[in-house]
């Protein structure tokens, strides 16, 4: 790890006025600094900022402070009651210790687990060295993405929380040198395209302050289903977050997001369109899942993820319709 200066920000203004890299839980950043992937010369500790509250918004939605720890958010009564998909997603991620450390804001910025990204001895990584190529293509790719990939990058977005937030259509509040702004989560994550180094919509110096959830939709049923090799403490091979309104045997409205398969938290619009207004039957779920994975481009070792993701959608929809 290279040497860096450290300061603790006491206000958002102070934090955004620096040129340093923000650190909160450190579960991604310290890990990557040890690997030599992140090499900040200045760290700004944002854990003391007054952003650790969960509060109800006037519109009935929920405002989650960026410094709220994953474990606290998962067990927050309002989240458990109205946003079960978020609670389930959080509790399916990482380990109890890491969830005690990781923050909401930090988790939004979680980096990929691509082993070639994580090892600087591979000079060819377009995320780390734009234009250098991609070592993952042609390498060990079982865990890589099948949706949203490009010739420049096939790295999977690893988060569970962000998948739930995508299904919930969260809005991310940020504050930077130029002021405050809101970013819909759909616009927050960037596809790799030819610039995998650009992962999100944040401008230099901008700090995530809150995540806003819309008011809970009445009668919606929420499910987070995560499929993986071992029983716990592992990243998803495929996961699905479903927020669905099912009544009279029909899907009235549904939002579906996928994890473990996309280069970003993957909103399955095609599946939603295929399901809305349709009978809640296994056949329709399967047809929608087929639609969701139509654009999948697997690599040599992860073709199974296509079928697995489909089954994940079908099972999650079945659970949400039960």
């Amino acid at each position: 790890m290279q040497s860096f200066s450290y300061e603790k920000a006491q206000s958002v203004e102070q934090a955004t006025g620096t040129t340093g890299k923000f650190i909160a839980g450190g579960t991604t950043l310290v890990d990557l600094m040890k690997l030599g992937v992140e090499t900040p010369t200045q760290l700004v500790d944002v854990t003391a900022l007054p952003l650790a509250q969960v509060e109800t918004l006037p519109n009935g939605g929920l405002r989650i402070g960026a410094m709220v720890r994953n474990s606290d958010l998962a067990h927050h009564p309002a989240v458990g009651k109205d946003y079960a998909v978020l609670s389930e997603a959080l509790l399916s991620g990482a380990s109890p210790q890491l969830r005690n450390m990781a923050t909401t804001g930090g988790n939004l910025l979680q980096r990929t687990r691509c082993p070639y990204f994580r090892d600087p001895s591979y000079s060819n990584c377009n995320k780390r060295n734009p234009g250098s190529g991609c070592a993952a293509i042609g390498g060990h790719n079982r865990m890589m993405a099948i949706l949203g990939t490009s010739d420049a990058c096939i790295a999977t977005h690893p988060s569970d929380m962000c998948v739930a937030l995508t299904a919930l259509e969260a809005t991310i509040q940020v504050e930077g040198p130029k002021g405050k702004r809101s970013i819909a989560i759909a616009d927050f994550y960037k596809l790799p395209g030819t610039t995998p180094n650009v992962e999100n919509a944040l401008e230099p110096g901008e700090l995530i302050t809150y995540v806003d959830l819309p008011a809970p939709r009445k009668a919606s049923k929420q499910v987070y289903l995560k499929l993986r090799d071992r029983a716990s403490y592992e990243f998803a091979l495929a996961s699905a977050a479903v927020v669905a309104e099912v009544s009279g045997g029909h899907v009235r409205a549904v939002q579906i997001a996928l994890g473990g398969v996309g280069t970003r938290p993957w909103r399955a619009h095609e599946a939603e369109a295929a399901l809305t207004g349709k009978p809640a039957t296994a056949a329709h779920f399967r047809a929608a899942a087929e639609d969701a994975l139509k654009g999948a481009k697997p690599s040599s070792e992860n073709g199974f993820k296509v079928e697995l993701a489909k089954r994940c959608i079908v099972r999650a929809m079945t659970m949400a319709s039960a």
Partner: peptide, 21 residues
């Protein structure tokens, strides 16, 4: 297959049984 590096050479990617397993 190209470098010979144990590419899952860490405890997150080389999977061993956890308590729930």
């Amino acid at each position: 297959p190209r470098t010979g590096q144990p590419i899952n050479g860490n405890m997150a990617d080389y999977l061993m049984a956890t308590c729930p397993d």
